[in-house]
Design a protein around this nucleic acid. Structure first.
Length: 341
DNA sequence: AACGGCCCCAACCGCCGGATA
DNA sequence: GTATCCGGCGGTTGGGGCCGT
């Protein structure tokens, strides 16, 4: 029924999606939203292009999406709307909750197109009375009228756009994690996990638990959503604060490289996280410092708590905390903790 | 049972418009 | 004003499944 999976010349997987891929994509989006389709597969641990991920999510994985089993009233509505709008499938889909443009398009070509032709012929020149058909169809067996719901179902998924500055506070971002109710199973404190090199971390994406598992450390945040150790002032910047205001993630990464012993086994892992987060933040704001619709704060949200997670392992007496405040991400302060043993 | 053709639909592709740099 | 990026849209395709011969 679907195309056999294969890899293109760029190493991107194409063709049918596996259950594991579905699980990774669904888990990631349900937890962090889709902030940038092109970047998303990297963080979700998928070897797919962003477009493919978007398509898979929009047409198949979204929880409110219905498959098949078109009702008579849905068929009638599609035929009526198609007569009015033509092949504007997305517009038609917007009028049918739970149905996607692709699904409606397929349904039209495989079922309704023939029926429309047949209706035109059998009605002997008379137009098919969609209104009558719909009215009849919307009465159930008890004779009570059922209205066709036009409004889109409220999505349970946190959408990334538009993410207004008002909703961009760190408090709300962190509470998103908490309200989702996921408990971290990331046992990063275990010796065998700590000793992973960053390249192994990347490779481990396919196993699921590194990137796909949530990072939550509720007890380490104060009521403002900041890490409690940060609120207590238990940090110091190794360089003038202005040094950290820069668009370049690489620059800050270089600072870290200079400040920290590169042989430290934490360094690769945390440096990698920090690099990714900073790249996201740079990417997510425009020249005026305004957050754009592509703001990947949700991604930052899922990375940052991890940095302060498991206090016995990351919060030690010898700790370096770097604070990077994006210009107007509304008091959102990115804090990375680098443990130096 | 074997074969071939059609059906169905998930997924791909190319293009477009809007936003941003 | 122009270039680039990204998401969205609609047309098309690939191939497994079904059905008739």
């Amino acid at each position: 029924m679907v195309r056999a999976p294969f890899y293109d010349k760029n190493g991107m997987k194409k063709g049918a999606w596996s259950a594991e891929e579905d699980h990774k994509l669904r888990s990631y989006i349900q937890r962090y939203g889709h902030w940038n389709w092109r970047e998303l597969p990297k963080f979700a641990g998928l070897k797919r292009c962003g477009k493919s991920c978007r398509l898979r999510w929009m047409n198949y994985l979204q929880p409110q999406v219905k498959h098949g089993n078109y009702t008579e009233e849905e068929d009638a509505l599609i035929m009526k709307l198609h007569e009015e709008l033509g092949n504007r499938w997305s517009t038609i889909a917007a009028r049918l909750p739970g149905r996607t443009d692709n699904d409606i398009k397929n349904h039209w070509h495989t079922h309704l197109k023939k029926r429309a032709k047949r209706n035109l012929k059998t009605s002997d020149g008379k137009e098919y009375d969609y209104t009558t058909s719909q009215t009849e169809a919307t009465h159930n067996s008890e004779g009570e009228a059922e209205s066709i719901i036009i409004d889109t179902l409220p999505s349970m998924i946190l959408e990334s756009s538009p993410l207004s500055p008002t909703t961009s506070s760190s408090t709300e971002l962190y509470s998103f994690s908490s309200e989702s109710g996921f408990i971290s199973s990331l046992n990063i404190g275990a010796t065998e996990d700590i000793c992973l090199h960053s390249s192994e971390i990347y490779e481990d994406q396919s196993s699921g638990d590194f990137w796909s598992e949530p990072f939550v450390a509720d007890n380490i945040y104060n009521q403002d959503g900041y890490p409690s150790f940060l609120a207590r002032g238990e940090f110091a910047l190794p360089l003038p604060y202005d040094m950290y205001f820069d668009d370049s993630a690489d620059l800050l990464y270089q600072v870290l490289m200079h400040e920290l012993p590169p042989t430290h086994f934490y360094f690769d892992v945390i440096g990698l996280w920090l690099r990714m987060v900073l790249a996201d933040l740079s990417f997510g704001r425009n020249v005026n410092g305004e957050s754009s619709h592509q703001m990947p704060l949700l991604n930052a949200c899922h990375v940052i708590p991890a940095l302060a997670l498991q206090p016995p392992y990351f919060i030690t007496d010898d700790i370096l905390i770097l604070t990077y405040t994006a210009f107007d991400i509304t008091l959102f302060t990115l804090t990375a903790a680098i443990s130096i043993l």
